[in-house]
Design a protein around this nucleic acid. Structure first.
Lengths: 119, 119
DNA sequence: TCGTAATTTCGCTATTGAACGAATTGACAA
DNA sequence: TTGTCAATTCGTTCAATAGCGAAATTACGA
C-alpha cells in the first residue's frame, strides 16, 4: 500500500509528469530539464529524487553530469502500466507538445555555455 | 493534463484507495464507510466528493441514504486501468483484507441503531 | 593540488490538503 | 408541518509538499 501511494503521489505533480514524458524522448541531465521546465536546479533535483525513489527512473554518472532515463527494467505492474498509459494519454497535450519541441533542440553544452555567459 | 493530475491526486490518499477497494465488494453509504475507515462522516463525504469528481464513483439516492458504487461505465482508459490494477495490486494488503472482513458484516440499519443508542 | 561546474542537500516560506466539529441541507415519516 | 436522521458544506487547525536561494558535495581539468 505504502509503495502504491508513493507512486501516485509522485504522479500527482505536473512537473514530475512532464519529466517522465521528456524522458520518453531521450536521456537528460538536470540542467537540460531545468531549461525546459523553467524551475530552479534544486527543484528539478528534488523531483528527480522522488521519481527515482519509486523506481520510475534511473541515473548514471557521465563525467560532471548525471544522466537520467526511464527505468524500463521494472517488473512492477503499476509502474509499467503508468509508463505505457502516460504517453498515450498526454501526447496531444499542449504543454507536453511544447516540451517535446524544446527537448529536440536542447543542447547540454550550449546550455551550459549560455549560463556561463550570463553569470 | 489537469484531469490526469486530478486522478493521481485522488489516488494518493490511503483512505480514498481503501474506499475504492471497498466499493469493489458492494455499494455502500457514507455511514457504512465511516464505520469501516474510522474517520468522521464529514471526512468520508469529502473523500467521496473527490472520487466522484474524477468519475471513479457514482452516487444514487436511496431514501435518506446515498449509495455509492464504482463507475464501471467510464470510457477513460486511465480510470479503467486503475480500477483493474488496484485489486490485483492490493488484495493481499493487510489493511485491505481487514477492510474486506468488515465490509461483509457491516449493516446499515444496525449501524444507525447503534449510533442512535450511543447518543 | 586547486579551481570550476553540475548536482545535491539544507533551511526557509507559501501553498495545498486531510481531518475535525458545527451548522446547514435534503428526504422521509409521524 | 414538524421532527429526525443521513449527508453535505463551512470554518478552522495541523501536517505535508513545492518552490527558492545558499551551502555543501562531487568530479573533471588546468
Amino acid at each position: 500500500m505504502e509503495k502504491l501511494l508513493k507512486i501516485f503521489k509522485a504522479l500527482s505533480d505536473k512537473n514530475r509528469v512532464r519529466i517522465l514524458l521528456l524522458l520518453t524522448k531521450k536521456k537528460l541531465c538536470v540542467c537540460e530539464i531545468q531549461d525546459i521546465l523553467g524551475v530552479t536546479v534544486s527543484t528539478v533535483s528534488k523531483h528527480l529524487s522522488i521519481l527515482r525513489d519509486c523506481d520510475f527512473i534511473i541515473d548514471e554518472k557521465d563525467g560532471k553530469w548525471v544522466n537520467y532515463s526511464l527505468n524500463t527494467a521494472s517488473k512492477d505492474i503499476v509502474l509499467n502500466q503508468i509508463l505505457l498509459i502516460l504517453p498515450f494519454y498526454l501526447n496531444n497535450d499542449e504543454l507536453i507538445q511544447s516540451d517535446f519541441e524544446k527537448v529536440n533542440s536542447v543542447c547540454r553544452k550550449n546550455l551550459c555555455n549560455i549560463l556561463l555567459n550570463i553569470s
